[in-house]
Design a protein around this nucleic acid. Sequence first.
DNA 1: AATCAGACCAACCGCTATGCC
DNA 2: TGGCATAGCGGTTGGTCTGAT
Length: 261
Amino acid sequence: MVGRPLRPNKSSDPTVKKGTWSAEEDQKLTAYIRRYGIWNWAHMPNPAGLARTGKSCRLRWMNYLRPNIRHGNITKEEEDLIIKLQQLLGNKWAAIAARLPGRTDNEIKNYWNTRLKKRVGYKNKLQIPIACDIKVKPNHNNGSSHPYACLPTIDTPKLEAGIGSQNEIPTMSENSFCTSYGVQYDDKTSENSWYSPCSVTEEEERLREQFLALRDIEIEENFCGMYMHSGATDPALVCMQQELVYHSGSCQDFIMDLWGK
DNA sequence: AATCAGACCAACCGCTATGCC
DNA sequence: TGGCATAGCGGTTGGTCTGAT
């Protein structure tokens, strides 16, 4: 983008420059970081000879100047991966970017908002739910209020037809006492959100929060494991190969172990 | 050639997380 | 333990580009 005028400065410091970075500024920042490294963004602009905020310098470096940034079109493979990771992780752009070597969170966010959101949003409408559907595993032994009776099970994201079929997951019966969580699609935001068809107790909510936290760990571990044992050199390729399938069974076992202790 | 609308994307802002004293 | 400084993240803005009319 060229010649972007300065925005109104709410903090109104006339000595701080805003707007598009010039080639000279880029050169100054790059040269300074190469020589002294990154030690403190807030105190860097002055000695680097830049009339910018540290925040602005950091953003410019992270999104444009730092080495190994891939400038250029997003490939079809990257696009597919973004879509799948967004369905899996939500709008965690930094986390998604970490799985696409050379791509920045800002770039992926922009790409999603301008190109993929509408397309995928429409697709989501046709196959709701996309996000993980937490259900309650009935306690077949006694049907009591024992914590195991409220143990949530997880429906794998419907990334591909045939993956994570609802039939594979034990689901609650209509007269079960526990709450089922589902996902509903919001037209305005193009996002999926949680809903509960019946009342949710604080305990159930707490359990769900714990489960979601554990699920995040599981996702990270699955990814690392896939990458480390695949022999591949590019994490993006590993993701494509493995389809980032999220193993509901192992996740349940993981939680069972935890509660059992 | 001029105009317009939508797409694109760099950069800003506000908020939260983290680290340090 | 609380307060402050810094880093990082995600949402939003608005100027430029581009294709259609």
